[in-house]
Amino acid sequence: MLESPQIHIDPGSGVPAVRQIMDGLRVFLVEGRLAPGTELPSVRRLAIELGIHFNTVAEAYRQLAAEGWLDLKHGRGAIVVHRAVPPTPDRERTEDYRNRLRALVAQMRSEGISADGIAAELRAMAEMVTQ
């Protein structure tokens, strides 16, 4: 039997907990480790295990549902659904991704990682999380 994937959060990282949960879950969803039909832990259980407020987990589930990854039905919890490939993101969204990547790349460069190294890392990651 496959072990359930584990989600990690670091309250000291400065990144809001809701964002950490969304990012962590999205990686598993894109990689297919959380396949359609998979039921996620209840908001209450996940909040207790992560030591964060119920509303934070509920908000992360809601946002992922809005992205089309989850189905939230009252009393049934959160279930992963098959998500149709979304249309090409609009200019504004593409610009947002570019800005976020720019900041990350700048940080990596400032820590001495070469441009080739960053490109290889990004390529490998993009291939790994192919839907």
Partner: peptide, 13 residues
Amino acid sequence: PRKRAAALSTAPD
């Protein structure tokens, strides 16, 4: 370390 991990499992407790 403040990091926490939780299994994404719905196995009954």
